[in-house]
Computed example of a mutant assay.
Amino acid sequence: MRITVLGGVGAFPERERGCSGYLLRHEGFTLLIDPGYATHQALLGHVGVGDVDAVLVTHGHPDHCADLHPLLRTRAMTGVPGPLPLHAPAGALDAVLALDAPATLAGAYQVHDLPMPGRLTIGPLTVDTQPLPHFLPNAGVRITAGGASVAYTGDAGGKAAFAELAGGADLLIAEATHATELPPRMVGNLGTALDAGELATRAAAKALWLTHLWPGSDPATHRTAAATAYDGSITVAVPGLEWDAS
């Protein structure tokens, strides 16, 4: 199992990196996770649009799913055989799929509601889900294949609730919007790098990626905050970063 970061910023893209976006490849199967703003071009640097076998979206905010639209448009308009399976919480993709007239994307996709909580199979991958607190319904996920596992929070307050499902993960990808403190409006719905470090320790994760940093944040500050609660490997997600289970 190999994971490649396509973006890594929260809320809106920076000049040189887009928002959430991850490419997971295993045994010839390609899963695109959370294709947020400005990740489509990064995706094309790794695979063609016809190489994506399925898409998994944790929740419906555009910094996690907006670039699903150019992916589907390209597939529909260049004749890539469909439909592309889209897995997301019920209703999460309604807005992005409504950007075109139905006929434009007809046959290009098929939506599957994520069970929350639950388990599903996507290609060779086993995906376990758990609802986690956010402004919109959000799925924390654990993806397992070939004896390796990756846990990803999506965007979530109350990360401690995810510790059991993320337990022993080879890699934990955790939202860390701010370093140690949140603005009042975010409390309970988003988290910090410190929260991510605490989750990694509770879950006994083997490595931690901090993602969804607020644009303009200092990555070193986030790493330092997470390290006060977790003594394992800590990396800030940036485009091109890769993790390989082998």
Results as ranks from 00 to 15, higher is better:
residue 117 P to S: 11
residue 99 L to D: 04
residue 86 L to H: 05
residue 130 Q to D: 00
residue 32 L to D: 06
residue 71 L to S: 04
residue 127 V to S: 06
residue 90 A to E: 15
residue 27 E to S: 14
residue 100 D to F: 10
residue 71 L to Q: 04
residue 101 A to K: 14
residue 72 L to A: 04
residue 73 R to W: 06
residue 57 V to L: 05
residue 105 L to H: 06
residue 93 L to N: 05
residue 37 Y to G: 07
residue 31 L to F: 10
residue 23 L to Y: 03
residue 102 P to D: 10
residue 124 P to H: 09
residue 37 Y to F: 15
residue 93 L to D: 07
residue 133 P to L: 04
residue 88 A to Q: 12
residue 68 L to R: 05
residue 113 D to G: 06
residue 91 G to N: 09
residue 47 V to A: 04
residue 43 L to A: 01
residue 57 V to G: 03
residue 72 L to W: 02
residue 140 G to H: 08
residue 103 A to Y: 12
residue 76 A to P: 06
residue 55 V to W: 01
residue 22 Y to E: 12
residue 116 M to Y: 08
residue 52 V to S: 10
residue 79 G to C: 11
residue 62 P to W: 13
residue 86 L to S: 09
residue 52 V to Q: 10
residue 141 V to C: 13
residue 20 S to D: 15
residue 77 M to T: 14
residue 62 P to C: 07
residue 122 I to H: 09
residue 118 G to D: 08
residue 102 P to G: 12
residue 108 A to M: 10
residue 114 L to R: 01
residue 32 L to A: 05
residue 46 H to E: 15
residue 109 Y to M: 02
residue 26 H to P: 06
residue 142 R to Q: 13
residue 63 D to N: 15
residue 57 V to A: 12
residue 122 I to N: 02
residue 56 L to E: 09
residue 140 G to I: 10
residue 121 T to W: 15
residue 119 R to I: 04
residue 18 G to P: 00
residue 59 H to F: 13
residue 64 H to I: 05
residue 58 T to D: 12
residue 105 L to T: 04
residue 132 L to E: 03
residue 99 L to R: 14
residue 95 A to W: 15
residue 107 G to A: 06
residue 123 G to T: 02
residue 53 D to M: 06
residue 97 L to K: 06
residue 48 G to D: 05
residue 97 L to H: 10
residue 35 P to E: 10
residue 17 R to I: 00
residue 122 I to L: 13
residue 118 G to I: 07
residue 90 A to S: 13
residue 145 A to N: 04
residue 125 L to W: 11
residue 127 V to A: 09
residue 39 T to L: 09
residue 57 V to Y: 10
residue 23 L to T: 05
residue 18 G to H: 00
residue 67 D to K: 04
residue 33 I to H: 14
residue 106 A to T: 10
residue 118 G to A: 13
residue 86 L to A: 01
residue 122 I to C: 09
residue 72 L to H: 07
residue 84 L to M: 09
residue 112 H to C: 14
residue 140 G to P: 01
residue 20 S to F: 00
residue 52 V to A: 11
residue 117 P to F: 12
residue 39 T to C: 12
residue 24 L to K: 06
residue 36 G to D: 01
residue 121 T to R: 15
residue 23 L to V: 03
residue 79 G to P: 01
residue 94 D to V: 11
residue 141 V to S: 01
residue 80 V to D: 05
